[in-house]
Amino acid sequence: MSKMHIKMTVNGQKKELLSEPRQLLIHVLREELGLTGPHIGCETSHCGACTVEMNGKSVKSCTVFAAQADGAEVTTIEGLGNPDGLHVLQEMFKEHHGLQCGFCTPGMITRAHRLLQENPNPTEEEVRFGMAGNLCRCTGYQNIVKAILAAAAEMNSAKEAAQ
């Protein structure tokens, strides 16, 4: 099968590559673009370790073909914060012990980032429901939920201060 010319904006940078249409977005990101933050956990769209943001939606990149992502804007964990300044979610996950092995963490934080954009002031129940597409085997979620609620509070007070 022939390869397709695919253009994407990934973490703010324009990328062009040749890909088989069937190549999965997670493989494009990890293998072609060297963005190994998102991980492959279940491959059947249950675990969310591969979560990235595509056109303003949280998506499971193991269940999106490269071809579908042609023209898309994609943000991965690598696009949030930077070594000199962690994103507040990254800070709060660290602060509240919201991770252990770290394998689910990039997907968790990327998903939480979108959740807080849509619902800046969630309840604990809303966080649990909003994070239900991401599985974690280590933490039992309690500290993840705590970290996200803390990040929401932090982001809201920063917003208020800015106003």
Binding site: E78, P83, F93, G102, P106
Partner: peptide, 8 residues
């Protein structure tokens, strides 16, 4: 460990 893991 967390600085590394939280940044992917």
């Amino acid at each position: 460990e967390d600085a590394r893991f939280t940044q992917g």
